[in-house]
């Protein structure tokens, strides 16, 4: 059974069609990257996976059941920024997920249970390479370290699906290469299912197992909102050759030029 199952899905805001006739199956253990021109609805689709938005029509199933209509523990998220808690230090940031689950009223653990949570969180920090910054506040961390923290925060919940919303878009190229290695490693080690939105086509091409390109097929220059985007390419990463990359790159650039 697929983890995510999308059939003939539409998303509209009034007359503005964002996504149309979307069909997609994502199995457990896949690492999908979503690329496409700006305004093609890839972020909207991610928000629907997260529970921040709901589709207008169509079938949208998570483990065979309709998607929960608000964010939940099954689906972790790493945003481009602002997704760590500035008032907690690095260790507490990771512990929070354990505490919120185990202490339903106070959201805080004490004594032996706290110690146990601390140990789990420490192990998680080690696996993202933040063990030496456990007692720093997020404001003292670099952008790359904050993203490592945000990933650790989500992974401690063992989500069935981890969503990444342009997670490395604001980082320096060198740092973002390190992050690519880290995310590949974590994906393999923890048997994660990942969906990552990126604006960087090369990133999409070299990370993960499957590349999904969102774009509009039909276009009416007089009413740009009339038609929505759908999946135009759905290719396994092993198939990705330089020619395909150039072809997709060209079509995205063309669309962005048309829109401006």
């Amino acid at each position: 059974m697929s983890l995510i199952s999308v059939k003939n899905l539409y998303k509209e805001y009034g007359d503005n069609v964002v996504l149309e006739k979307l069909n997609l199956e994502i199995k457990e253990g896949e690492f999908c990257t979503l690329v496409g021109p700006s305004g093609c609805g890839k972020s909207t689709f991610l928000k629907m996976l997260l529970g921040q938005e709901t589709p207008t029509r169509g079938t949208f199933l998570f483990e065979g059941k309709p998607f929960p209509k608000e964010p939940s523990v099954e689906r972790g998220i790493v945003f481009q920024r602002y997704s760590v808690f500035s008032h907690l230090n690095v260790l507490e940031n990771v512990m929070l997920g354990i505490e919120l689950e185990k202490s339903r009223f106070f959201g805080k653990l004490f004594g032996a249970k706290r110690k146990e949570a601390k140990k789990i969180a420490m192990d998680m920090l080690e696996s993202v390479g933040l063990e030496n910054s456990a007692y720093k506040f997020p404001s003292e961390l670099s952008g790359g370290m904050q993203q490592r923290l945000s990933i650790a925060q989500s992974l401690v919940k063992k989500p069935k699906l981890l969503l990444l919303d342009e997670p490395f878009g604001a980082l320096d190229p060198g740092i973002s290469a390190d992050m690519h290695t880290l995310i590949q490693e974590l994906w393999k080690k923890n048997n994660l299912t990942l969906v990552m939105v990126t604006h960087d086509l090369h990133e999409g091409f070299h990370l993960g197992t499957r590349l999904l390109v969102f774009d509009k097929i039909r276009h009416d220059p007089h009413a740009p909102d009339r038609f929505g985007a759908t999946i135009t390419y759905d290719i396994p990463i092993s198939d990705t050759s330089e020619t395909t990359l150039n072809k997709i790159d060209k079509s995205i650039k063309k669309r962005e030029k048309n829109d401006n």
Binding site: L50, Q52, P71, E99, E101, S103, G107, K108, K157
Partner: peptide, 26 residues
């Protein structure tokens, strides 16, 4: 930031525990 509140929900917070652990301390 909305990102923080959504993140807290994906970490398993209820409205009450999010107030207690995320909003009040900030």
């Amino acid at each position: 930031p909305a990102e923080q509140l959504i993140k807290a929900q994906t970490l398993g917070g209820s409205t009450w525990t999010i107030v207690l652990r995320v909003i009040l301390p900030q």
